[in-house]
């Protein structure tokens, strides 16, 4: 069974993946895909969105005679991630309550 990870949840997952250290596009995509099932073509729009809203920034590093663009979390991104963690905890609990039949009909 599959649950779709999209929208703000996916954005937060990407922020989470980048909280430790910056990563470049391919590397980041592989990391995310190791954890959740998203299509390859989903990541670029997410990164663009996070860049536009200032939660990520980029820097370039030369590699093997070409350029590699790294994505890095910003202060704003870290704050957004914190909010996401809080929201996720309460969301997770609500879902689990329902799945375990904890709410009386």
């Amino acid at each position: 069974m599959r649950f779709t990870v999209a929208g703000t949840l996916l954005d937060s997952c990407v922020l989470g993946a980048l909280q430790g250290r910056p990563a470049y596009g391919y590397e980041l995509t592989q990391q995310i895909q190791a954890a959740i099932d998203v299509s390859e073509s989903t990541l670029y729009p997410v990164l663009r969105r996070l860049l536009q809203s200032g939660k990520l920034d980029t820097f370039d590093e030369p590699f093997d005679g070409r350029n590699r663009r790294y994505y890095r979390i910003t202060g704003q991104g870290k704050a957004a991630l914190q909010d996401a963690m809080t929201a996720w905890h309460s969301y997770k609990e609500s879902i689990e309550t329902l799945l375990t039949g904890g709410i009386e009909p």
């Binding site: 391919y26 995509t29 073509s41 670029y44 729009p45 663009r69």
Partner: peptide, 28 residues
Amino acid sequence: EYFDDAGPENEGKVMTELGSPKAVAAKI
């Protein structure tokens, strides 16, 4: 960059996983 980092040996695999260029463009 994505293709470069995946490496030439993975070119086919990347294209399969990305799907059609039109689908990729549609998302963007």
